[in-house]
Design a binder for these strands. Structure first.
Lengths: 150, 150
DNA sequence: GTTAATATTTGAAGATTATTCAGTTATATA
DNA sequence: TATATAACTGAATAATCTTCAAATATTAAC
């Protein structure tokens, strides 16, 4: 066993996919060279960043979703971007936004289970000196990354 | 002008992409047939749902992100799934979860601007009889769909 | 521990698809 | 209206995916 699947999952999380030009050409009834031209244009303009996989996260041990609202400590309050970019490096962080309202950050985190979540939040609160955080746990994911789940 | 790009964006939002087997094979130094076999296995097992595009949403007129926490009316409180699945059909809804805590739903919505957001929330509150909602606006997207933004 | 069944890996061949290129048509600009 | 630029497209080529059959490895049963 070479455990290729876990490597594949990591690659597909961010990219290593490509458009199906021939299939699209059939679908919208245009020549494949026209489709090709328009896709390259979207890429050139930077409108398309990447092509990636979407998973049934329960089946890949990432079924536990938590939204975490964060207050930063006084030290980091003025510049949340550095903290956010650091957190963004964690592959379990699906999204992170700097936001309005009572909290400065909103993080969408994917872990295997509540135990892994607990470890993550404990370590992260300590490391980044969050002054407060409020976690909302997903009970059921109905749609993710624009893809409806069945 | 045939406006092919907007059709492409819609298709890539949910799929119409495919893995780059040859590129992956080089990357992890395994034969492409082995990569092929393992990908098909992941698909067969339902671990991979789809391959899709990720966009620079500001450049495609979807740069305004809002997280909306929702309380349902008494009518819908007991069965939030129906409401969630209905909302999931909207292409501007990136994700929707049924959740713990003070609110029953958490929606991640992408609109062109705050005006489109206002129209959406006004219509949706009315249509689905939300008893209360709390919106958090993203000021800066640092990471989305597991992809770091620059 | 041996055997049988099943799953994974792999190279070679064929089928399909992406890409390049050159020419055409359409759109925008002066 | 003339000119420049952008968008579209068919034909040929290059690259990739997919199938297949055989080898190897893993698992299960006895």
């Amino acid at each position: 066993m070479k455990d290729i699947t876990s490597k594949l999952i990591n690659l597909f999380k961010q990219g290593y996919c490509t458009p199906q030009i021939a299939r699209i050409a059939k679908k919208i009834k245009e020549p494949s060279t026209t489709i090709h031209y328009n896709i390259k244009k979207l890429e050139r303009e930077g409108k398309i960043i990447s092509y990636k996989g979407v998973f049934d996260y329960k089946k890949i041990e990432e079924g536990h979703v938590t939204f975490i609202l964060v207050n930063l400590s006084d030290d980091n309050y003025g510049e949340p971007e550095g903290v956010a970019q650091e957190l963004a490096k964690d592959p379990r962080v699906e999204s992170i936004d700097i936001c309005t309202g009572d909290y400065e950050l909103i993080i969408k985190l994917r872990t295997k289970d509540i135990d892994e979540y607990y470890e993550w939040i404990k370590n992260t609160v300590h490391k980044f000196k969050f002054s407060k955080s409020y976690s909302i746990t997903s009970l059921k994911q109905v749609k993710t990354e624009f893809v409806e789940l069945k």
